[in-house]
Each structure stands twice: as structure tokens, then as C-alpha cells.
């Protein structure tokens, strides 16, 4: 008998005795939950409409130390990227072949480490920024939803010290249930091997619970958000 069969056998034997449902020992608030209530009714509130979603996303970004810049249209990404490049003195960037990325990084006139066809980790590590697209933004948490398909693989958005996300206003979702619905709708036929919610720049509180940014991942997270809906 294999280990797998032994473990499954032990589990089935254990489960032959039924365990009581949760909350049998004390007053459960099950009643208050109400008929047809869903996770959306318990999670933190997100306002109706785009402007409230944007306001909440801005609030979270400021709390999380995410640099969120709203620009009129995707055509303005190029100029905005040049401004950041000049301010930070970027010498080399990492990028992937997404439509938005390709049309926006030309103005910087910098050498690019493209991740698409495979790359050397040492080379990407020396880049000053990783520029990616995303699947969605989540107002409820201030997160960017990326996958290995939408954001140039696993490392581009975490290895360089600055992660810049290019996003469109119609990608701003209200909450987590919407984000999970989007993942399923977009990918359920073949899931990418990596999906991540990125919520602010990398951080740690492991020393005396004092917040330090840039623990292992990017010290800076910039989101360029184009247009209004």
C-alpha cells in the first residue's frame, strides 16, 4: 500500500464519525448573517461607482506607500515614465512584451531586459525597475492583481527595486469577490502557474515591529492609472 492510500485510508476511517457543526457550543451569530448574505456583506465596504472606488484605492495607496499617479490616458504613460526615470536616474529597465508596456517605454531610450523568452536572473537583478501590466486593481484592498501571463513572469515584478504597473481605469474592480470572479472567468481553461495580489511595496516588521520598506522585494511600487470611466 502506498503512503497516499495509507493516509487517505486513515482520513476516511477518522471521518466515519461525524463532527459537530461549528458554533454548537456557544451562541453563533448565524442568525444575524441573514438569508442570501454573501462574503461581500461582511468584508470592508466599498462605495458604489467609479469615483468612490478610485477614492478608496487612493486612500489605500497612500496608507500603503504606493505611489499612485492618475493620468488622462494611456498615451501619457510614456511622458510619466520619463519623469520617473529622470528623477531616479534609471540606467536599465526590465519589461515584458505587453502592448501597453511596449508603446510606453520607448521614450526613456534605455537598455531593456525583456523577460518574455527567458532571461538571466543576474541581468534582471541589475535593472533599476521592472515595468509590467496587470490583470486588475482592487479598490477594497489597494491591491494590484498580476499573473505570470499579464506581468511578464514571476520575477519581473519582484526582483528589481522598483515595480511600475501600467493600468487602465476600467481595470479598477470593487472588491475581492470581483477579483476572484475575474481570475476564474479569464483563466479557468488554463490557469497560469503564478497569480498574485500585490498590495504596496515589499515590507517587514520583523525587527521590533518597526515598519521597513523593501525587505526582499521592491522598495517602491508605482501605479500609473490611465483615464476615467
Amino acid at each position: 500500500m502506498t503512503s497516499r492510500e495509507k493516509i487517505l485510508g486513515r482520513i476516511r476511517e477518522a471521518l466515519s464519525i461525524v463532527a459537530p457543526r461549528p458554533g454548537h457550543n456557544e451562541g453563533s451569530s448565524k442568525v444575524k448573517r441573514g438569508e442570501g448574505a454573501s462574503v461581500r456583506d461582511w468584508l470592508p465596504r466599498v462605495g458604489e461607482g467609479y469615483s468612490e472606488r478610485l477614492a478608496l484605492f487612493q486612500q489605500h495607496s497612500s496608507d500603503l506607500k504606493t505611489d499612485l499617479r492618475v493620468v488622462p490616458s494611456v498615451g501619457d504613460f510614456e511622458a510619466e515614465l520619463r519623469r520617473i526615470q529622470e528623477a531616479e536616474g534609471w540606467k536599465k529597465i526590465g519589461a515584458h512584451g505587453g502592448t501597453l508596456v511596449k508603446r510606453s517605454i520607448g521614450g526613456m531610450n534605455l537598455p531593456v531586459c525583456w523577460t518574455d523568452g527567458g532571461y538571466a536572473a543576474e541581468e534582471l537583478e541589475k535593472c533599476d525597475a521592472g515595468i509590467t501590466e496587470c490583470d486588475a486593481l482592487v479598490a477594497q484592498t489597494g491591491s494590484v492583481l498580476i499573473t505570470s501571463r499579464s506581468a511578464g513572469g514571476r520575477a519581473l515584478s519582484v526582483l528589481p527595486p522598483h515595480h511600475v504597473v501600467l493600468a487602465r481605469a476600467d481595470q479598477l474592480l470593487a472588491d475581492l469577490p470581483d477579483a476572484f470572479a475575474l481570475i476564474k472567468q479569464r483563466y479557468s481553461a488554463a490557469y497560469p502557474s503564478f497569480i498574485s495580489f500585490v498590495t504596496g511595496p515589499s515590507r517587514t516588521g520583523d525587527i521590533e515591529r518597526i515598519l521597513v520598506l523593501g525587505a526582499h522585494g521592491p522598495k517602491k511600487l508605482t501605479i500609473l492609472l490611465a483615464g476615467e470611466v
Binding site: S148, S193, S202, G217
Partner: peptide, 18 residues
């Protein structure tokens, strides 16, 4: 929300760079 909530579903898939 924690900074990174990541889901891994396998090794590098066809078409993925890393």
C-alpha cells in the same frame, strides 16, 4: 491585506518566461 498573496499551481507552464 498582506503585501503579497500569491498562488502557485505548478512548474513553469508553456509560454511563461520563468
Amino acid at each position: 491585506f498582506t503585501c503579497y498573496n500569491s498562488f502557485y499551481g505548478g512548474p513553469r507552464q508553456p509560454g511563461e518566461p520563468d
